[in-house]
């Protein structure tokens, strides 16, 4: 499903940029519904492995949304890093902590309503302010043309070179840190 969504998205956006945007809206609706449903399942399922799989669905949907937005490189990276690396890491985590394969009873906090309330409160605040601020603003049609990877590269290696370097140091530090923290001794 994911792969097909992606493919269709990739193919469609390029064509559709000249045709019209109804189909894109349909796609977006589909992706959004799938993503939200999967996310809800992820935070409510009683099976850790299932939760990881639902997360997989959400992450792929997000990649599809990137494609819709013309951010191809980000979509590719999302697939590579999130679906590829981070999900594997997550599954390793599930495995190494010997989670039960199957349903577990005690995965949630008893006072679930606290989380619900905070979530709804935050959504109310964010939703209100978003509608207030960007109520009728549309993304210009021209902007859906995929941003070339070259442009992204140019940005990274000119304007954002210092954050980029800092990021590489951060990754190195995280690597060492993870080894040190998780080492058995």
């Amino acid at each position: 499903m994911i792969a097909s969504l992606l493919e269709i998205g990739l193919a469609q956006t390029q064509e559709l940029s000249s045709v019209g945007f109804d189909l894109v809206n349909v796609f977006f609706g589909l992706i959004a519904v799938v993503a939200i449903a999967a996310a809800l399942k992820m935070v409510s399922t009683a099976n850790v492995v299932h939760a990881a799989l639902y997360l997989l669905v959400v992450l792929s949907s997000v990649a599809a949304v990137y494609v819709l937005l013309g951010a191809e490189f980000a979509a590719a990276t999302q697939v590579l890093v999130y679906l590829g690396a981070i999900m594997v890491l997550m599954l390793f985590g599930v495995m190494l902590t010997r989670a039960k394969i199957g349903k577990e009873t005690d995965l949630d906090y008893e006072h679930r309503w606290v989380g619900v309330l905070v979530g709804i409160l935050m959504f109310a605040v964010m939703g209100y302010s978003l509608i207030e601020e960007f109520g009728d603003q549309k993304i210009p049609n021209d902007n859906y043309a995929p941003i070339q990877t070259e442009a992204v590269a140019n940005e990274i290696f000119s304007t954002y070179i210092v954050p980029f370097e800092a990021l590489s140091v951060l990754l190195l530090a995280a690597l060492i840190g993870a080894v040190v923290v998780a080492r058995k001794d």
């Binding site: 939200i36 935070v43 949304v65 997550m90 979530g119 709804i120």
Partner: peptide, 21 residues
């Protein structure tokens, strides 16, 4: 869409007991 995902994520952080979750 992103706000909805965000709030679901917040709910998950607040409610889940399992560290991986």
């Amino acid at each position: 869409f992103s706000a909805i995902l965000f709030c679901i994520g917040v709910y998950g952080v607040l409610v889940r007991k399992n560290g991986v979750l």
